[in-house]
């Protein structure tokens, strides 16, 4: 009996040791990736935040300590506050123009009995093209003198517009291409979510004689809600980190009407060599985005 217990204990010990070994091995395998992330991702962020309290001197880092001066300057800088409003405006446009279209399209494609794959493929192919190249092409499309957009209007006898050169059209022109550039990817994500909705629910609803709108309202949307929330969160993050497209299409113009916070920070850093102020602004952008994301997620979770 005693020998059995001893053997059992020995076995347990060996198993425990093996378990610990495995865990250690796992941790060790994770270590390079973790070290890289900490070193190349978080360390620069922390260093960047640290630099915001200095008037940066490139040659003798970190430079002269100035406390919260950069933050005070940012919060009193009308151009930066204006840029914040441009980001907010960009978010509204993305919400109105880009957010719901892939959902509706995904529902339509999901309903299709035939050719589902072709629809999906056709809509997804443009998403595979490099977005920068697509954006450059769209810039030519909106060209007011010989662009395709005005040519199309002229066929119908409608006078040409200034498009990207017009403060009232510019956001529309920036976000319209996204229907093609990123819409395909979003459609595929929504479609994947829709295919996870249990078919029995729809069958039961059909039996009960529920109409299409109520089916969408009470079955489809609640079932894909988690994906909608995720995509909305990503929209917030994207809208407040908007820069590349703006840089290519308008450079912040016309008359600074599309100058976003990140673009302004970039211009301050590169054109004016005011790196610590640029970093201060990016830190504020990070905090704003983070806060909005957290608040939004909290609100939606509470509602759940």
């Amino acid at each position: 009996m005693k020998t059995e217990i001893k053997t059992e204990k020995k076995k347990n010990k060996v198993m425990l040791r093996q378990g610990v070994r495995k865990e250690v091995l796992g941790l060790m395998l994770l270590l390079p990736a973790l070290a890289s992330i900490l070193l190349f991702k978080y360390f620069p962020i922390v260093l960047g935040v640290f630099e915001t309290f200095f008037k940066m001197n490139i040659v003798k880092l970190p430079g002269e300590f100035i406390g919260f001066d950069n933050y005070i300057r940012a919060f009193t800088d009308k151009q930066f506050l204006g840029a914040f409003l441009h980001n907010a405006k960009a978010f509204c446009y993305s919400l109105c123009m880009n957010f719901w279209v892939p959902i509706v399209l995904a529902m339509l494609v999901d309903e299709a009995r035939r050719g589902k794959t072709i629809f999906r493929l056709l809509y997804f192919i443009p998403a595979c093209a490099p977005s920068i190249a697509m954006t450059v092409l769209w810039k030519f499309f909106w060209q007011p003198d010989y662009g395709l957009a005005n040519y199309i209007l002229s066929i119908f006898g409608i006078p040409g517009q200034m498009w990207l050169n017009s403060e009232s059209w510019v956001y529309f022109c920036i976000y319209f291409p996204h229907l093609v550039i990123s819409g395909g990817m979003n459609l595929v994500i929504y479609l994947a979510a829709l295919q996870d909705v249990p078919g029995e629910l729809y069958e039961a609803a059909l039996v009960d004689g529920v109409g299409i709108f109520n089916r969408i309202r009470y079955i489809t949307i609640p079932c894909i809600k988690h994906i909608i929330i995720l995509m909305l969160t990503l929209s917030i993050i994207n809208a407040f980190n908007l820069m590349e497209n703006i840089m290519i299409l308008t450079g912040g113009g016309p008359s600074n009407s599309t100058q976003t916070m990140l673009l302004y920070a970039y211009q301050q850093g590169v054109n004016s060599m005011d790196y610590s102020y640029a970093m201060t602004m990016t830190t504020i952008i990070f905090i704003v985005t983070m806060t909005l994301t957290v608040v939004f997620n909290k609100v939606t979770r509470e509602k759940d």
Binding site: S166, P254, S255, N256, N271, S272
Partner: peptide, 19 residues
């Protein structure tokens, strides 16, 4: 000094005037 800043600041009013 700040010649680049003059040019940067002029972009907005000039674009407004031109357009």
């Amino acid at each position: 000094d700040h010649w680049s800043d003059i040019k940067s600041q002029l972009v907005s009013p000039l674009q407004k005037i031109y357009l």
